[in-house]
């Protein structure tokens, strides 16, 4: 069926605001980033030239790139499952009738509404050796202080803990909403059939939460690559890149070293990574999680 011409015009007019915003702030920058990644660094004295894949070749030889990529994978692995599990546990806890429920919900959600920079500043003092909260507690039970952020072995886990603390409350809200959407009769039906709490959770509730889990999972993965605000305050990627993550490295490259073209190449890699993961999640996992 052919739409009358006037309808086409209407359709385009209605699409335009969104399309303009998308093109101006998403598609056009993406294209220019890809193009830019094929050129060399330019200064007023030495203009930039087309160098093909040189920036990517440089990336392969750049140990810091591999280091931050590895860090990012560990960071994702370390934060995502734990924060999701914690979010579910917290949501289960506050999804019951308990005194001061809204207060507890609020308390769980508080980390999320705090700006990341503020959170990082708080945790900076938690982690500070000797005077930090964590060390003071450890000293009280007779364990001598550790330099959490100054030791390459502990710095990334320390940042993961903070991220989990920050993210779990956010994810909890989604789980809480999803749990409240599960009809209470399902639980009653399961109870009558003799299903205990665990059986109910694993056989009924968790499968029903799968759409939420998928949503949260995608968000968590994206966040693990997107959230780097805390690094500005906590470690600046140190010591010796032990806590450096890909996006922070891109920032450093672009704005500290002014190697915007190399940064563009790194950005392209990040884009491809994220796009691949998002597509994979939607196509592979999506089929298994929706029941309605």
């Amino acid at each position: 069926m052919q739409l009358p011409r006037k309808n086409h015009v209407h359709a385009w007019l209605l699409l335009m605001p969104a399309a303009i915003l998308l093109i101006a702030f998403t598609h056009y920058p993406t294209v220019t980033t890809v193009v830019k990644s094929l050129f060399s660094k330019g200064t007023a004295i030495r203009p930039s030239q087309f160098t093909g894949l040189d920036n990517y070749r440089m990336m392969i030889e750049d140990p810091v790139f591999w280091k931050v990529l590895g860090n990012n994978l560990w960071f994702a692995l370390g934060t995502i499952p734990t924060s999701i599990a914690l979010a579910i546990v917290m949501a289960l806890f506050v999804n019951r009738a308990l005194p001061g429920r809204s207060l507890v919900r609020m308390a769980y959600f508080t980390p999320t509404i705090l700006p990341m920079i503020a959170v990082a500043n708080i945790w900076l003092f938690f982690y500070t050796p000797d005077i930090g909260l964590i060390d003071q507690i450890l000293t009280a039970v007779g364990i001598s202080g550790r330099n959490w952020l100054g030791d390459p072995a502990t710095v990334l886990p320390a940042i993961m803990v903070m991220t989990i603390w920050k993210e779990a409350g956010f994810f909890m809200i989604f789980y809480l909403a999803a749990m409240q959407n599960i009809p209470p009769e399902l639980k009653e039906a399961a109870r009558l059939e003799g299903a205990g709490r665990w059986t109910y959770f694993f056989r009924v509730m968790f499968p029903l939460l799968m759409p939420t889990t998928l949503f949260v999972f995608i968000n968590a993965v994206l966040n693990s690559f997107k959230l780097v605000d805390h690094l500005f305050v906590l470690t600046k990627g140190g010591p010796d890149n032990a806590s450096n993550l890909l996006l922070y490295y891109i920032f450093e490259t672009a704005f500290s070293y002014f190697e915007t073209h190399y940064a563009a190449a790194l950005t392209v890699v990040l884009l491809v990574l994220l796009a691949a993961m998002a597509l994979g999640q939607f196509f592979i996992l999506d089929k298994r999680v929706h029941y309605r």
């Binding site: 009558l192 029903l208 029941y291």
Partner: peptide, 28 residues
């Protein structure tokens, strides 16, 4: 409830949406 020897049919049926009819019937 599970040991009273009663079964119940709910107004909303309370079928588990993620399970097939077979799995729903066999759940208990």
């Amino acid at each position: 409830p599970a040991r009273r020897g009663v079964s119940m049919v709910f107004q909303s049926y309370a079928l588990f949406p993620h399970l097939s009819v077979r799995e729903n019937i066999l759940f208990g």
